[in-house]
Design a protein around this nucleic acid. Structure first.
Length: 273
DNA sequence: GCAAAATGTCAAG
DNA sequence: TTGACCTTTTGCA
């Protein structure tokens, strides 16, 4: 399920399955009928991810200017999901917002919060409102830190703000703060530059591993077993959804509280105020 | 058979 | 801060 690592994983898979192909695109459920009509039969030029967003770039004619390219913009939200496989495509089941058919593969999208067609201007508007993505290796996290260091808002909230850092969700937020012993309540302007550098580098490491594994594993279990196949779900996280269970490091029961409508998990001892 | 939950976002009050 | 929205899966009657 969907934080930035899933968006990146989908982008890579779809590029491999469908890149440079003219795709059949439809919306069996009907909610994307108009968009599918715009894109059906066009060539998929590229697929990229920014934060939790994926962007399928289409060009209708080989000779058409790139300025007329269109993007299918998808945000999975809380429970959106892509499925895919080798042709033939399975019989339709349930609510399929978008179906892609390529030369050898199919893909189906269910339950996204956003699925729309953007032109170049729309894409620009989207990217301008997103903060740095730790999966984009050229980025240093400096722009994100400039926002954090100037804010009195808690770091736990800043990490979830897609205009500050894009791609981090509730799991990575909780886990990375635990790994660095930082209380989620600490104001951004009290995060030292060295602390931020370490957090940013760790986010990159954790999210890269998430892209590779298809799931988030932040505990030492992942270091011991880099393939992660044998890492039991109960050993995936330090604090996420472990409230009431003993902290893996100090044994104190893990805390949970509601912050900005989301459950926030942390260890009050390992992440002191 | 039905309610609740799930790694998210936006807009209304 | 709350509710609405997108859909499937899980758990309990």
């Amino acid at each position: 399920m969907p934080e930035g690592h899933i968006a990146e994983r989908v982008a890579r898979e779809h590029k491999r399955y469908f890149g440079r192909q003219r795709l059949r695109i439809d919306s069996p459920q009907g909610k994307f009928e108009h968009g599918a009509g715009l894109l059906d039969g066009a060539c998929l030029v590229n697929v990229t991810a920014i934060g939790k967003h994926t962007l399928h770039r289409f060009r209708r004619d080989e000779n058409a200017p790139a300025a007329r390219d269109l993007w299918m913009h998808v945000h999975l939200g809380l429970y959106g999901k892509w499925a895919s496989g080798d042709l033939p495509a399975p019989a339709l089941r349930g609510m399929v917002r978008v179906r892609l058919l390529g030369e050898q593969h199919w893909a189906e999208l269910r339950g996204p919060t956003t699925c729309e067609v953007l032109n170049g201007a729309g894409l620009k508007r989207l990217t301008e409102r997103l903060g740095e993505d730790p999966l984009h290796t050229k980025l240093s996290g400096a722009a994100a830190y400039a926002k954090i260091a100037n804010s009195g808002r808690p770091i736990g909230e800043l990490l979830m703000d897609q205009a500050v850092v894009s791609g981090v969700g509730n799991v990575y937020r909780a886990e990375v703060l635990f790994r660095h012993g930082i209380a989620p309540h600490r104001p951004g302007n009290r995060i030292a530059a060295e602390e931020w550098t370490a957090l940013w580098m760790d986010l990159e490491t954790l999210m890269r591993s998430g892209v590779r594994l298809g799931r988030i594993i932040t505990t030492a279990a992942a270091d011991r077993d880099s393939r992660s196949r044998t890492v039991h779900p109960a050993d995936q996280y330090y604090v996420y959804r472990r409230h009431g269970l003993p902290c893996r490091v100090c044994g104190t029961p893990v805390s949970v509280e509601l912050a900005a409508g989301r459950r926030l998990y942390y260890c009050a001892v390992c992440q002191p105020a």
